[in-house]
Design a protein around this nucleic acid. Structure first.
Lengths: 200, 200
DNA sequence: CACTAAGCGGACCATAGGGTCCGGTTGTGT
DNA sequence: ACACAACCGGACCCTATGGTCCGCTTAGTG
């Protein structure tokens, strides 16, 4: 591959990542190409179609998330909090990257193998994190990775769909709700921060 | 208004309602007009634009939901379960009407005054339901209507975004998670049903 | 330096969706 | 029965988007 070609590919990846972060995967390829300073032709020569570009960018981002979670599992084998440490990190990343969890559980993208794999891996990781919490009696024994996934996805979708992004304070509060749903009562905690103000 | 005009308006409303139920508000006005057996011109003569049609249909559906909730408030002034009775009903309706909660908290539709009002009314209703639960010590005192809204919206979005609609069993399970998040520990209950199977 | 294949990018295409328009039709009061 | 306003509906327009194509440019090698 020629040097300039590689450089352009890189530029597209970076531009796509930036645009996805800010606007979600709905941004048009045209805008991405413009941001990258290349023509549409160049973009599509490097990525078969938009889905392939999404898979390339988000696959990597999700990979980082998975690494983070696996790292947590290794670091402290008896941390009852590990699930919520991870989920908090996940939500924080989602907060500065609208696209991060868009591809997970979305009919459109479940057909892209690379993302399907990331989804499965994420569920597996959540399962492992929960298992740790269950061992020390922090997590309800019947709770599953899918249960947690639903709550987290819901939280993320809710906050990124809203007009203006929710305050970090509100997100922390919502995380406390997730915690209350998943933990044994004595591991619950009071809700932090203020509720979202009524719009208008 | 001429008789045939009125009849056509009605047909459009019914067709739109049916299409929204099944496909969500994303269906094209063309499909709605076809289903109603009228031309696009007729549709747009009766409703200024697509948003107006959505507001007309969903406004009515949301009104029914509000009536249901207010009815519950009147019927038994000491029912600790009233919040979850309502939310279960809400989720059941959403299950057979993809569009029901789409308009709530969606940037696109928060600008339509009629739906904005319905949103505010829904939050107010949830607040009243929760207040009842708090009085008898069933609901966490710091929990707010917005907290519940987030959980319910998340649950609904999660289930209607998925490839195939989730099993009713799974939705009941998720409702138990919502309950766990909102209630005092002794009002929680074990999760019903089986978790969602891993896709592929 | 010159040649050539790899690479470039923007003009172009097809599709889809919301919304408008107008020539023809039809309900309805007289 | 007639006239005419109200009404109809589909052809049409405009915009946006994903994706293709091809004449021009340029990296890089002999």
């Amino acid at each position: 591959m020629r040097k300039d070609a590689l450089r352009n590919r890189q530029r597209v990846l970076e531009a796509a990542d930036a645009m996805f972060r800010e606007h979600g995967v709905e941004v048009s390829v045209g805008e991405i190409a413009d941001a990258a300073g290349v023509g549409r032709g160049t973009l599509f020569r490097n990525f078969k179609n938009k889905d392939a570009l999404i898979a390339a960018v988000l696959g990597e981002r999700l990979g980082e998330v998975l690494d983070y979670g696996r790292q947590l599992l290794v670091e402290d084998p008896d941390d009852a909090e590990v699930t919520f440490t991870f989920v908090t990190g996940l939500v924080e990343r989602q907060e500065e990257n609208r696209a991060l969890l868009q591809t997970v559980t979305d009919e459109l993208f479940m057909s892209v193998p690379e993302l399907q794999g990331a989804h499965a891996a994420l569920l597996e990781l959540l399962g492992a994190l929960l298992a740790r919490g269950k061992r020390v009696g922090a997590i309800r024994p019947e709770a599953t990775a899918t249960d947690l996934m639903m709550l987290v996805k819901g939280l993320c979708m809710y906050s990124s769909t809203d007009q203006q992004p929710l305050a970090a304070e509100t997100i922390m509060r919502h995380l406390d709700l997730v915690r209350a749903a998943m933990t044994m009562p004595e591991y619950s905690r009071p809700l932090r921060g203020a509720p979202v103000p009524l719009p208008v």
